[in-house]
């Protein structure tokens, strides 16, 4: 298969950046989108040119490193797919494909298609954890957890923190990411105790990072490679309301 790639090239965060067009030929239909970039980069290296920088790690759809806004969609046109699991058979032979980095103020471009997603790490540091050491794995059923709750918590925990939600959101809101962490931890007994301070602190950090508000357009859910339900956002909103209205209020650690 042959494609024409229009790829965003940017030397560093100070460079305004521009699109460059590359024809790629001899692509196998079972190559992943990233493997097509490998083919392109190998050629660029042979030609003595600068290869295209992009994030990737596991290449099996579980790490959340690969990003890329492909033809106007986060991780490309397929549902529930990371870029590494997007295959070239999903494109038409001869198609022109536009590839851009995630666009959001809190995700500054580091180089080409690589953006800095450490804003998400700082949101997790603000409260996306359980403060006490929970020790060794205990016997199953020592702490009873309702089946439905465990399932819902697990579904929320599937978030890989790739940033597609914020990249696809019209408001650059990271709320689906924050909500998946809040829902996951608050639904389980170990995380329940700190649920009030957690939600307030994580939302405050999200604000500090410069992410927007939620308009409930559901674009995040549609683009999420792990199909995190946007019902988690409703859960976060309710947790936030409860935490803010409780007379004592959550104990929020000063930053």
């Amino acid at each position: 298969m042959n494609f024409t790639l229009k790829v965003w090239r940017q030397k560093d965060s100070g460079d305004p950046g521009h699109f460059e067009t590359y024809p790629v030929t001899g692509i196998l239909e079972d190559m992943s989108f990233l493997e097509m970039f490998d083919v392109l980069n190998e050629r660029l290296i042979v030609e003595g040119k600068d290869p295209v920088a992009f994030d990737h790690d596991c290449r099996e759809g579980i790490c959340g490193m690969c990003s890329m806004y492909i033809n106007g969609r986060a991780h490309g046109p397929m549902k529930a797919t990371t870029t590494c699991q997007l295959f070239m058979r999903h494109f038409r032979d001869g198609e022109t494909i536009v590839v851009e980095p995630w666009r959001a103020a809190p995700f500054p471009v580091v180089r080409d298609l690589v953006v800095d997603r450490s804003a998400f790490d700082r949101i997790i540091e603000a409260g996306g954890f359980i403060s006490v050491n929970t020790g060794n794995a205990v016997d199953a059923n020592t702490i009873p957890v309702e089946k439905d709750r465990a399932e819902a918590a697990f579904a929320a925990a599937a978030c890989i923190g790739c940033g597609a939600c914020a990249a696809a959101c019209i408001n650059s809101s990271a709320l689906l990411f924050v909500a998946s962490k809040v829902a996951h931890l608050s639904m389980l007994p170990q995380g329940f105790a700190e649920r009030r301070s957690r939600v307030v602190q994580m939302v405050a950090q999200m604000d500090r990072e410069g992410f927007g508000s939620c308009s409930n357009t559901r674009a995040c859910e549609a683009e999420c490679p792990k199909e995190i339900s946007y019902s988690n956002i409703a859960k976060l909103n309710l947790e936030y309301l409860r935490a803010s209205l409780s007379p004592q209020g959550p104990v929020v650690q000063k930053k």
């Binding site: 806004y69 106007g72 851009e100 559901r218």
Partner: peptide, 8 residues
């Protein structure tokens, strides 16, 4: 390029 009609 942004195809928002496909997600919302």
């Amino acid at each position: 390029v942004s195809r928002r009609n496909q997600n919302s």
